[in-house]
Design a protein around this nucleic acid. Sequence first.
DNA 1: CAGCATCCACGAAGATACTG
DNA 2: CAGTATCTTCGTGGATGCTG
Lengths: 94, 94
Amino acid sequence: MHLLGGRWRLLIASYLIDGPKRFNELRRLIPGISQRMLSLDLRALEDARLVARTVFPTVPVKVEYALTEEGRRLGKVVAVVQEFGLWLKDRDAS
Amino acid sequence: MHLLGGRWRLLIASYLIDGPKRFNELRRLIPGISQRMLSLDLRALEDARLVARTVFPTVPVKVEYALTEEGRRLGKVVAVVQEFGLWLKDRDAS
DNA sequence: CAGCATCCACGAAGATACTG
DNA sequence: CAGTATCTTCGTGGATGCTG
């Protein structure tokens, strides 16, 4: 829960499931997240070896974030939590 | 994530899966949780109609907490997150 | 037993500005 | 583009004491 309980981490992971994403790409995909939190959370996921950070030495720099092989285990967690969230939202709507 | 992201809620739910529990029973089962947090989190789960609170008017009072029919949906979430947590712990141990 | 009230500490998160 | 630095705010959770 300490690793996943944050407000954004599972959400970030959910976007990485369908392929690598760049920093600002993630920022756009996740409305409301601050540069700072995206940076910190990506770093935490990286430290847990669930996300890999690849730097392409172009100009300007291009940085890609992708789930590692181990990080793919997050897929199931994301799916189940997401399903639960949707059910809850739907239930409370009606 | 707002509903489940707390430190204890999923853990509390995990203990309720195998049957109703009393307040102090949960306290004993969950080392480290404070009275306050147990109370607050149970209330939150109750407000979400995932947990039902039953008061038996005995002396002293007996209060039971149980998952509702809807609350049983937490079972899958608990299982998957728990599995992930165990895997992570095991991986980092070796 | 099963709590609530109060006060306090700390980390998570937000805002803003700046940089290679 | 992809961040870091700094400051501030806010929510979560802990400690303690009290009650029907």
